[in-house]
């Protein structure tokens, strides 16, 4: 079913919207969740929470691209589940691995009432940075740190060797850190 028709079901409060979403985007959302959680049970919980969040948010939201909207919900929910369940320990999930890698970019403090606004400002800055670099480097960075795909897989669909991808990611992380420092973010 086309996205526009699925969105119409949400707006009409037709519960078949959930099943249509599951049929079309279930595997896509599950992969995002599993990259973060590395647990079948937790991933299922995350995806189910995504359907609920989608139902609660549409309307009033009417995203232009449903897959991206749902993917963001799943990513945020999965990261929240991960943090809640793994507050004091690490697991071998791609999210956990990415935390070590992203230490190259930023070292800001957590918490504070301005956190949400600060996150949006940071997102805007990162977006500007990503638009300034090559398409390959940008897609690689987003594939690895937004979708949290394994390095090997990210390199494959970006059309490069794993070693080249590793080098490119390292340079991108260093460049991002320099960019954020120049933009005045507290590192």
């Amino acid at each position: 079913m086309e996205d526009e028709k699925i969105l119409s079901l949400y707006w009409q409060r037709d519960e078949s919207a959930i099943q249509e979403t599951k049929d079309k985007y279930g595997p896509y959302l599950y992969k995002i969740a599993y990259n973060i959680l590395c647990s079948l049970q937790d991933s299922e919980e995350s995806v189910n929470d995504t359907y609920l969040a989608a139902w609660d948010s549409m309307p009033p939201h009417r995203p232009n691209v449903l897959s991206t909207y749902l993917g963001k919900l799943t990513r945020r929910i999965s990261i929240d589940i991960f943090r809640r369940k793994n507050r004091d320990k690490r697991q071998a999930s791609e999210y956990a691995l990415s935390l070590d890698e992203l230490a190259d970019c930023i070292s800001a403090r957590d918490g504070g009432p301005e956190q949400v606004l600060e996150a949006q400002l940071l997102a805007d800055a990162i977006g500007d940075f990503l638009r300034s670099i090559s398409e390959d480097a940008r897609n690689l960075f987003i594939g690895r740190y937004y979708f949290l795909d394994p390095l090997k897989e990210t390199a494959r669909y970006c059309g490069m060797s794993e070693s080249k991808a590793k080098s490119m990611l390292f340079r991108t992380r260093c460049s991002l850190r320099a960019y954020l420092e120049k933009e005045g973010f507290d590192l």
């Binding site: 995203p63 232009n64 691209v65 991206t68 909207y69 963001k72 990513r75 945020r76 990261i79 943090r83 999210y95 990415s98 935390l99 070590d100 992203l102 230490a103 970019c105 930023i106 070292s107 800001a108 403090r109 957590d110 956190q115 600060e118 996150a119 949006q120 940071l122 997102a123 990162i126 977006g127 990503l130 987003i142 740190y145 937004y146």
Partner: peptide, 14 residues
């Protein structure tokens, strides 16, 4: 600290 970066990545333009 890296959590902050991940939260920001979740807000990237579509």
């Amino acid at each position: 600290r890296q959590n902050k970066l991940h939260d920001a990545l979740g807000l990237l333009d579509d």
